[in-house]
Design a protein around this nucleic acid. Structure first.
Lengths: 181, 181
DNA sequence: AAAGATTGACAGATCAATCTTG
DNA sequence: CAAGATTGATCTGTCAATCTTT
C-alpha cells in the first residue's frame, strides 16, 4: 500500500513547486494521529454539549469567556479572541445565544460600532448546569486518558502549533511557560 | 478574574450531577492549549487547501485515502473510516468530488447497496499538484514548529485521545506503538 | 476614513428518514 | 429485514459587502 498522503506521490514531481521535503515515517505517523485528533475531538465535544445543553463547543466557549470576565461583560472583538473564533462567527453565535436569553448585547460609546456582550443570569445558570458534564467528557477523552506528563507535553505542543498559525495573540494563549507566575 | 470554564463555578454545585473533579491549574492550561489547537489548525489547513486547490481538509483526505488504496478504489464505508468521517458526510463530499470529475462511483454487488468510489486520473493529478503545498503548510504549522521529541509526544497523545473517543477502530489508527513492524 | 460590528448568500456538516439490494 | 448508502431539512461557518460611530 503506497501511501500518497503526505509522503508524496510515487512519481517524481515535475511541478514548479519549490521542492518540499516529504515526511518520514515517524513524522507521517504523528501527523496521522493529529489528523485523527482534529477530526474526532471537536465532534465528540460538540455531540456531548449539544445533547446535554443545546450548545456547540464554540458557544460554550463564548459563555465561559463571558462568565470569566469582570461584570460578565466583554467587547465583541475581545470576546471573539477569548473564544477563539472570528468576529463574524461570534456575531452569528451571539445572535443565537441572545435569542435563547443567555446573553445580551448593548452598544456602548467609543470608536466604531462598539458593542458589549453580557452573560445573563439565565446564561450563568445554564453554564453552571452544563460545566460538570463538559468537564466529565474532557476528563474521559483527554485528561484522564493521558499520563500527567503526556498531558503536559500535549499542551506544550498544542501551544506551539497555535503560535505557528499566528491566528491568536501570544498573550491570550500565554501563561503556560514553565514555572512562571 | 475567576475563570468559570473548566475549573468550575465559584459557588457550590447543588446539582444532581455526581460530583466532577475540576481541573487543576496545569490541566486547565493544557486543556486551553488543546482547545486552541482544535479551533485553529483545521481552519488553517482548510484555508490553505481551499485557496490553492478548491478542496477542504476532509475532501483532501478522501482523495488521499483513495490514492493509497489498491486500484485507487474503496468501498464507501471503508473510505469513510479511512477519511475519518461519517458515511453521510462522505456521501455528500463524494457527490461534490464526482461533480468535479475527481472521483467516480460504481455500484457493485454484495449485501446492501454497496458502492465503490474510484479516484480518476484527473483526481490523481489534482492530488499530485496539491500535496506539496499541503505538506509545506503541515511543516510550517506543526512538523517544523516542534522538536522531534515534541512531535512524537504529540502524536502519541493524539492517538490516545482518538482511542478514548472510540470513534475510529484502533487498527485503523494503529501501527504507531513503539517499535512494532 | 478607519475601527468595530453585522448581514446575507452560500458552502458544508449533521441527523433522521429513506431507499436499495441480497 | 439488515447492511450499505443516499437524501433533504436544518444548522453553522465563511467570505465579502455593508453599515455605524467617532
Amino acid at each position: 500500500m503506497d501511501e500518497v498522503l503526505m509522503d508524496g506521490p510515487v512519481e517524481k514531481l515535475t511541478q514548479v513547486e519549490p521542492e518540499v521535503a516529504w515526511l518520514d515515517a515517524q513524522q507521517l505517523d504523528a501527523w496521522k494521529q493529529l489528523m485523527g485528533l482534529i477530526m474526532t475531538l471537536p465532534v465528540a465535544l460538540d455531540t456531548q454539549l449539544k445533547r446535554d445543553a443545546g450548545l456547540n463547543l464554540f458557544e460554550y466557549h463564548v459563555l465561559a469567556s463571558l462568565s470569566a470576565a469582570p461584570q460578565a461583560t466583554l467587547l465583541m472583538s475581545d470576546l471573539a479572541e477569548q473564544s477563539l473564533g472570528s468576529l463574524s462567527r461570534l456575531s452569528h453565535a451571539v445572535s443565537r445565544l441572545e435569542r435563547a436569553g443567555w446573553v445580551e448585547r448593548r452598544s456602548c460609546g467609543g470608536a466604531g460600532r462598539r458593542t458589549e456582550a453580557r452573560l445573563t443570569e439565565k446564561g450563568r445558570q445554564l453554564l453552571r448546569r452544563t460545566a460538570p458534564g463538559h468537564v466529565r467528557e474532557a476528563r474521559r477523552l483527554v485528561i484522564d486518558a493521558l499520563t500527567c506528563d503526556a498531558l503536559q507535553a500535549l499542551g506544550e505542543a498544542a501551544g506551539q502549533v497555535v503560535a505557528a498559525t499566528g491566528l491568536f495573540s501570544a498573550e491570550l494563549m500565554g501563561r503556560n511557560r514553565s514555572g512562571d507566575r
